[in-house]
Every structure is written in C-alpha cells, then in structure tokens.
Amino acid sequence: MLSCKDVTRLLSESMDTSLPIGRRIGVRLHLLMCGFCARYERQLNLIRGAARHLAAVEEMPVDPSGGNLSEEAKERIRKSLRNNP
C-alpha cells in the first residue's frame, strides 16, 4: 500500500514524467480513499495553473504600477547601444 507521503511524491512526479501503470493505479486507488491526498492533487494543479497564468499575464499591457524597466536602466542601455555600433 502506498502511504500519503509516497502519494504526494508520485503526484508531483506524474506532473513531470509518466508513471508506470501499476503506480498510476496505486495512486488513483489511494486518492479514492484519501481526502487529504485528493485535495493535495487539486492544489498542485492549481499551483501549476497559477504559474502558467503568470507567464501569460506578461503579454498584457504595461503595468503602470512599476513592473517596468526604470528610466535609469533605460538610459544606461540606450547609451551602451550607442557605444556599440
């Protein structure tokens, strides 16, 4: 029998590689009986979703609250571009 500790490790691993069929079945059976591990799986998926959402958000228009290159940095970079023709 897989323990909760094993299952949390395998749930993470299954996000990076495909588990052997026996392992997969073991995990699914455990999740049917264990509310905590089922919840853990949902939360891992939410975390993955949040990370992907963050990556997609950078396509959005400029954030006026300061998530941008500072004026000093811009000037420094402009200068370095001018000095390297």
């Binding site: 950078e58 400029v62 998530g67 941008n68 290159l69 940095a73 811009k74 970079i77 402009r78 571009l81």
Partner: peptide, 9 residues
Amino acid sequence: VDRYGDYLF
C-alpha cells in the same frame, strides 16, 4: 529600448 525594453524586463 522604448519599444521592447519593458516587455523584455
């Protein structure tokens, strides 16, 4: 810099 700077940042 003006066109792509903030995006790359």
